[in-house]
Computed example of a mutant assay.
Amino acid sequence: MAKIRIYDPALCCPTGVCGPSVDPELTRIATAIFMLEKKGVDIARFNLGTEPQAFIDDQTVNQLLNEKGTDALPAVVVDGKVELIGEYPSNDQLAEWTKVDSSEWTKARTTSKGIELL
């Protein structure tokens, strides 16, 4: 199973799912990550605004930011290789990398109380 790291631009909170109007893409990726973590997948997400050390420690991401700046974020690193720049992975991409069928994590929704399984 792949090791996946998602490097977000600076967001208002750790998930980016906050504020008066929530971006549905951030909700989707937060839910997917939560569900994949529950399945034992080695996946982590880092926010430039609250976890800058993670961006410094990963040489690949550090080099990417030096070359392209924060426009490269979000960046997705799979097994040490940058797979996506400037976009979040689709559910199909996550399924391919993790070998976990996306139907196993798309039956959930984010609410004000957290993520609920359907």
Score class of each variant (00 low, 15 high):
W97V: 03
Y7D: 01
D58V: 01
R28T: 05
I6K: 09
A10V: 02
A2Y: 13
D57Q: 14
P20K: 05
E25W: 04
T50G: 04
D71T: 07
F55W: 03
I4Q: 08
A95H: 05
Q63M: 12
N91Q: 09
A54P: 06
V76S: 02
A72M: 08
T98L: 14
G49L: 02
I85V: 14
N62Q: 14
P74H: 02
G114I: 01
E83M: 15
P52N: 02
D71S: 11
Q63N: 12
K38F: 01
F34W: 08
T31F: 04
L11H: 06
N66R: 15
K99W: 00
T106S: 11
V41A: 12
I56M: 07
G86A: 07
L118W: 06
I6Q: 09
D58K: 04
E116L: 14
N47I: 00
R109V: 10
T111W: 04
L64W: 09
T31N: 10
L65E: 04
D42E: 15
I85M: 09
T15Y: 10
L117D: 04
K3S: 13
K81R: 15
P74I: 00
L94P: 02
C12V: 02
N62W: 06
A75L: 08
V82P: 05
V100L: 09
I29V: 12
K81W: 06
G114F: 03
G80R: 02
T50C: 00
V41T: 12
P24L: 05
T27N: 07
G114Y: 04
T70Q: 11
A95L: 07
T60P: 00
K113I: 01
E87S: 12
D92Q: 15
M1N: 09
K38I: 03
G114R: 06
T60K: 12
S90I: 04
L48T: 00
M1Y: 12
G86R: 06
G16T: 06
G86I: 03
E51W: 01
I85D: 01
A75M: 09
K113C: 05
A75S: 13
T110F: 10
A44N: 12
I6H: 08
E104S: 12
L84P: 12
G80Y: 04
I56W: 00
I56G: 00
D8H: 10
P89I: 00
I4G: 07
L94N: 03
E96K: 15
L65V: 03
F46S: 01
T27L: 10
V77Q: 06
E51K: 06
D92P: 05
G49D: 03
Q53E: 15
K81T: 13
L64F: 08
C12M: 09
L94W: 05
I115Q: 07
D23T: 00
K38M: 12
E104N: 08
T110I: 15
N62M: 13
L11N: 06
I43M: 11
W105A: 00
V17G: 09
E104Q: 14
L117K: 13
C13W: 02
I4F: 09
P89M: 01
A72W: 08
G19M: 05
D92A: 15
K68I: 02
E104H: 06
Q93I: 02
E25R: 15
V22H: 07
Q59W: 11
I29E: 04
L26R: 15
I4S: 07
